[in-house]
């Protein structure tokens, strides 16, 4: 496991709320290899973003992080402290966010914000930093890069701002980029372009990419490995082929069934998973998904561990793999014939 870029074992994040502690992330373990694309999938409110923020040490003030192991490229992040984490952030691990309209500082030029990132981590002249910024703006598909450096965020469209964010994240050639719903707020056509751009850049810069999304369509196009999160837990993880070809957790099966497909008959209700993510205050017992699960049974009240082979495919359900696989076939059959 030495070649792992990111190695997280049993990450827990608890947020103090007026109604009691909220277990936003529970025993999440994930490993990302160098140059790999790792997708975290799930509905809103299931703990994806808070997982990403806590990897960066950027949790909200009232959140507490606990983990058995948090290694980044051989460095133990739990012992780093704020100044050590600051040196990693933007330098070796960078992050882009969902809201391109508000993620850039409105009162500074693009050039200033890009060069500040580089100058926060290395002793380079302003001219060198501007050179790098122009090069990267060009790289992310922005024309007239040099003129753009003098522009302010409000002069750019949402798509352009997200490109600027990507360029900013690349300023120090990070080893890992975390992208939290990077295309959700954008037009569909721009989504596809940006996704392609991210994939190309990832290959060119040999970065690990952690992509957080609720959109399985995106995941199917880009992921090497996938973790499906539900109510603060990973309910299934494995290679992209395994997750899409042989989904074993009823939640994953439900998510996949919800992807609209062209052969889907028109004017028919799109499939959906009934119910919503349960509130996480106070902690849930047993399988978190059982209230929405079509196959729930009394023994689902027990605590369930991830089972299966770690490198290939694991899932958190009491059903044997064969039964689950049969369910998955049935679900797919239903979708086609209904």
């Amino acid at each position: 496991m030495d070649s792992m870029l990111l190695d997280i074992e049993k990450l827990n994040v608890t947020i103090d709320t007026a109604a009691g502690p909220l277990k936003a992330v529970q025993n999440v373990s994930l490993r990302v290899a160098k140059g790999e694309t790792f997708c975290i999938v799930g509905e809103s409110g299931c703990g994806k973003s808070i997982t990403a923020l806590s990897l960066m040490g950027l949790m909200p003030k009232r959140a507490k992080r606990r983990a058995e192991r948090m290694m980044f490229d051989g460095t133990d992040m739990t012992t780093l402290g704020e100044s050590g984490m600051r040196r990693l952030r933007g330098n070796r691990i960078s992050m882009i966010f969902q809201e391109p309209m508000t993620s850039l500082n409105p009162v500074f030029t693009i050039g200033q914000q890009l060069t500040d990132v580089m100058r926060a981590h290395s002793r380079v002249s302003l001219a060198e930093a501007r050179e790098r910024a122009a090069f990267l703006l060009n790289k992310v598909g922005i024309t007239n890069a040099r003129e753009r450096l003098g522009q302010f965020p409000h002069e750019l469209s949402g798509g352009l701002r997200q490109r600027v964010m990507i360029a900013m994240a690349l300023m120090c050639s990070p080893d890992l980029m975390i992208a939290d719903e990077p295309t959700t707020a954008l037009d569909v056509t721009i989504q596809a372009e940006l996704l392609r751009l991210l994939r190309d850049l990832q290959q060119e810069f040999e970065m690990g990419l952690v992509l957080i999304t609720h959109d399985l369509g995106i995941v199917s196009r880009i992921a090497d490995r996938i973790a499906v999160m539900y109510a603060g837990q990973i309910v299934e993880d494995g290679t992209a082929d395994e997750i899409f070809g042989n989904p074993l957790h009823p939640y994953t099966q439900g998510l996949i069934a919800c992807i609209p497909s062209p052969d889907h008959p028109r004017m028919q209700h799109l499939p959906s998973i009934p119910g919503t993510v349960p509130p996480l205050i106070g902690g849930l017992k047993g399988c978190h998904f059982r209230e929405r699960c079509p196959y729930a049974m009394p023994s689902c009240m027990e605590e369930i561990e991830l089972k299966g082979h770690e490198a290939a495919h694991r899932y958190r359900c009491i059903l044997p793999a064969q039964t689950s696989a049969a369910h998955a076939k049935m679900a797919q059959g239903e979708q086609v014939h209904a």
Binding site: R86, R89, G90, N91, F97, S103, N105, V117, H121, M168
Partner: peptide, 14 residues
């Protein structure tokens, strides 16, 4: 604001 979160995520000194 989001842009301060960005600045922190980029390792800008506090």
């Amino acid at each position: 604001t989001d842009f301060i979160r960005t600045a922190r995520a980029m390792g800008i000194p506090s």
